[in-house]
Each structure stands twice: as C-alpha cells, then as structure tokens.
Amino acid sequence: MNGKTGVLFGRLMRHILRSPDTIITVAITPIAIMLMFVYVFGGAITASLPSGVNYVNYQLPGILLMAINSGISYTAFRMFGDRQSGIFSRFHSMPIRRSSALWAHVFVSLVSNMLTVAIIFLVALPMGFRSSAGILEWLSVAGILALFTLALTWVAVIPGLVAKSAEGASVFSYPLIFLPMFSSAFAPTETMPAAVRWFAENQPITSIVETLRSLLNAEPAGNEIWIALAWCAGIALVAYFFAMRAYGRA
C-alpha cells in the first residue's frame, strides 16, 4: 500500500467506523441464520451426520462465506457512492496514482469483512464452537477467508464501477448470499436430488467449506484445499481483469 492509498484507506475506514451499522448489519443476518440452523434444524440434521459431529462447527464455515458474500455488496455500494458524488473524479484529477482510489476500496473491503468474520467467530463460541486447530491451521483459515474475500471484492468492484443506480450496484450479491445453501455447508449432499447434488458438489462454496471445516477440526484437508485455492484464485484473476477494464473506462 503506497502512502496515498493509505490516506484514502483511512478515509474509507473512517466511514465504516462512523456508521458501524455496516459491519453489524453484515454480521447480523448470517448470525440469525446460524441461530436458526443450529437451534431449529441442527438437531434433525445432526441425526444424519456421523456420530460425534459438532453441528456448530459443521455449519460455521458456510455462515462465514455467507457473511462475506453479503459484505462485499457494501464495497460495491461505497464505490458507486464515490463515483456518483464526484469524489472519484476529484481524486483522478489529482497528482496521485490513479489506481490508489480503487485499491483503497479493495483493502477496506478486506479489512471490514475480516472484522465481520471475527464477530461471527466470537458469537459461535458461546453456541458451542470449539476448534482443535493449531497456529498453522488458523493461519490457513485466515488466508483462505482473505483470498475468498479478495476474489469476491474484485467481483463487487465491477458493478460498483458500471452500475447506474445504488440498487443496481449491490443487487448482484443476493444470489451469492444463497449460494452456500446449495452446497455441503449446512447439510450433507448425499440426500439431495441428483441435479442439485451435482451442482452442490461442484460449486466453489463446497470445496472452500470442506477445506475450512477440515482445518478448523485439525483434520487433513486433502485435495479440497487445492480445489478451493484454485477457485478463489481463478475468480480473483477473472474478476480483476474485468474490474480493471471497467476502471480504465470509468
């Protein structure tokens, strides 16, 4: 982060700290869904899981991804606001590197989503979340969540730059929020109808969820970690390419 990006990062962090509701709102829906899964469906689902599985641990990775999926819509929303208000034009006509304004948003997205994730971890603790992960596993968990956030942030940058309205800038995230439902995040895929099961087993959320679950339980993640990393890196690269193209035109 160069000095100017740092100044612009500070500006956006101040926005978030002055309206902490953005972090809380982003955390509250996934927390409500977590409460519902654990205390409403949890008992029934646990019955179909191998004995000894802690369902709070089981569903937590899916909730974290859901939170990030909705959190990035604020990134798009903030970028749209900066375009709309003319602040972007002001920065772009100043003697600073043009991309500073964009990178500040990307870093803020990363930091604010990690804060949301931390809040959800804290809420899961009294619900019975326990992890036997060591330092290395925790670092891997943080790294994968950060990479996933970065990938989706670049996705969010595109509507943030091209949308014609604030609603248009953030609507893209709705389907993403539901994506973990159609994966192995909350229930095993074995009981799903063939087509749904095929989708669930082959979409990126499943491999990322399985990886996070293994790491948090200090179990070997096997091949899943590489599939998860490939998905994150692939989405990040493709989205980065289109985001930069949109930024060049903006």
Partner: peptide, 10 residues
Amino acid sequence: GQFAAVDDIL
C-alpha cells in the same frame, strides 16, 4: 466538478 465532490461523512 459539477456536483460538490465533498465527503459527506467527514
């Protein structure tokens, strides 16, 4: 610019 480009939150 055409619209006051100030940061409303600051």
